[in-house]
Design a protein around this nucleic acid. Sequence first.
DNA 1: GTCTATATATAGATAGAC
DNA 2: GTCTATCTATATATAGAC
Lengths: 187, 187
Amino acid sequence: MTSVKGMSSRALQAEHTRQQILQTAQRLFVERGYDATSLQLIADEMGLTKAAVYYHFRVKSELLHATMKPGIERINAVADEAAALRGRRARIEHVVSGVADFLVENRHYAVMAATDPAAKRHDMDKETSDLRERILTLFYGDNPTATQRLAYAAVAGIPDSLPELVELSDDELREALRETMLRILRV
Amino acid sequence: MTSVKGMSSRALQAEHTRQQILQTAQRLFVERGYDATSLQLIADEMGLTKAAVYYHFRVKSELLHATMKPGIERINAVADEAAALRGRRARIEHVVSGVADFLVENRHYAVMAATDPAAKRHDMDKETSDLRERILTLFYGDNPTATQRLAYAAVAGIPDSLPELVELSDDELREALRETMLRILRV
DNA sequence: GTCTATATATAGATAGAC
DNA sequence: GTCTATCTATATATAGAC
């Protein structure tokens, strides 16, 4: 999506601005939530105008979409790898590792992606819930028990609580995440 | 808070309207999120005017506060009871039962209370996070390990996933909740 | 106690100059 | 590619009639 090679210097500048807007938007979405983040605010924080933001993103929801896309793609790739493995245990371990790494690298962002009401509206809904459903099936097959589903739900809810664990180092967090997720998912 | 005895019939009518507004607001907050729910929408759904809503609630955030208050009080009461018990195991079991009952009775509402960005702004933040912190201490003392905190976080994140478990009956959900929370919290 | 009418601010979005 | 200017809709909130 973000091809850089063979672009004019003007196009490169545009891509740079686009990325900066995305970064600012992402930070504000995390801090205040999507609905409470206006385009005006995003523009002000960057010393741009609303119109400049609109040049790069046609509608506000495109910012949300673009913000979440890399994460979804990355976890989908992890799921691809897990699907190629044999055995529940191996699959669970692979996904748990991949997700733990991802969460550690995106400690703040992941919260918003998992909980913001705006993400439940818009089409984003489908991509994330498809991904969740896909991994659930990968783990427990087509007919998971209530207990399995709830265990999965508990793990899926962990990102929600990452802000409360700020005082853990990356390594501590990753280890605790792996350990806890594995323990919960072995049902 | 909602004393009824000894009120004039006019005051009773007002209290009734107030409760109806609260119910409608609560439903819409759950469906669309707080920020995406306008007072206009609330009024329209009830066949009232915005001004009528403003008569009962001075500012919009008061609706959010009033909506969440009963739940917070109820879980605080459960925590009170647990604090009177001796032993980690007994305390965990008591809180888990109380919370499971509460979640089953408020399947949809609890999600919003746990995740809406608007709840993280406003003063509501403090009351809920105090409650969470209080129960964590009740369970694991003043210096919980990383694993204990993450286990607690996982459990706290469960409400987030209740909507995906609609097809479970109340009894199935309560049992699965109790079982899963207990298993996770025994660390 | 509830409404009409309105104030005021700000949202998302677009057209067109530069 | 970025800005000025502006449109339109809708937000929260208030004053005052009934």
